[in-house]
Simulated scan of single mutants.
Amino acid sequence: MEAKMLLLLLATLGPGPAAGSHLGCSMPGSPCDISKNAAAVQQAVLGAAHSFNSQSNDAFLFKPSAVIRAQRQVVRGIRYIVDFQISRTVCPKRNRTSDLDRCHLQPPGRLAQTFRCHMDLCLTPWKPGRETLELQCRSHQQEPVLIRTGSDQDPVLFK
């Protein structure tokens, strides 16, 4: 009876990677690719854009323009590793707009600017808040302009 249950379980799971494979999510605790459109990914990227806006000296707000890659890893909480882009909008900072959905991207030209960012974020469900392990953003022409490590309350350091 146990053999039949095991065969039924294996048939339900379908074909998968070979046992012992270290690619993808087959290894417990390893990072695995997730949907770029996942709600947690979108929230994390939006939070990173707000953090970038609060720390930058730019006259315009930036908003997420593309998620390039998203991964999740189960550790002592849930770790998200996300590569994304933020682009300058037409909304001036002085207007204090918090809804970035209302801000359109700058049209192509001298004011258009995009940063490629890498974020490493850990969410621990049984603790309030989140811990940003790393946030780096760089333009195509420069070294990293924003590096953030530690908890949400730690200062952001500029290079």
Rank of each mutant, 00 (worst) to 15 (best):
M1D: 04
M1S: 12
M5E: 03
L6T: 01
L9H: 00
L9C: 07
L9V: 02
A11I: 03
A11W: 01
T12G: 10
T12W: 10
L13C: 09
G16H: 04
G16Q: 05
G20M: 06
S21W: 04
S21Y: 02
L23F: 06
G24Q: 08
G24S: 12
C25L: 07
C25P: 02
M27E: 09
P28E: 11
G29Q: 12
I34W: 07
S35R: 10
S35H: 00
K36A: 14
K36Y: 00
K36H: 08
A38M: 08
A38E: 10
A40P: 01
Q43K: 15
A44Q: 04
L46I: 05
G47N: 14
G47L: 12
A48W: 00
H50E: 15
H50Y: 11
F52H: 08
F52Q: 08
S54G: 12
S54R: 12
Q55C: 15
S56R: 12
D58H: 10
A59L: 13
F60V: 08
L61P: 03
L61S: 13
F62W: 10
K63F: 07
K63W: 05
P64D: 05
V67D: 01
I68C: 07
I68Y: 00
R69G: 10
R69V: 05
R72L: 15
Q73A: 13
Q73R: 12
V74G: 06
V74Q: 11
V74N: 12
V75Y: 04
V75H: 04
G77N: 04
G77R: 02
I78A: 13
I78F: 13
R79K: 13
Y80G: 05
Y80S: 07
V82R: 00
V82Y: 02
D83V: 08
D83W: 09
Q85F: 02
R88I: 03
T89V: 06
T89K: 06
T89M: 09
P92F: 14
P92W: 05
K93G: 08
R96V: 03
R96N: 10
D99C: 10
R110K: 15
A112Q: 11
T114Q: 02
T114I: 01
F115S: 02
R116V: 05
L121K: 07
L121W: 02
C122T: 15
L123H: 08
T124G: 02
P125W: 09
W126C: 11
K127M: 11
T132S: 10
L133T: 00
L133C: 12
E134G: 08
E134A: 15
R138D: 06
R138L: 12
S139F: 00
H140W: 11
H140N: 09
H140P: 01
Q141A: 15
Q142D: 09
Q142N: 14
E143M: 12
E143D: 13
E143S: 14
E143H: 11
E143Y: 09
P144W: 03
L146Y: 04
L146S: 08
I147G: 07
I147F: 07
R148T: 01
T149E: 05
G150P: 08
G150F: 06
S151F: 12
D152W: 11
Q153E: 12
Q153S: 15
Q153D: 13
P155D: 01
V156E: 05
K159Y: 09
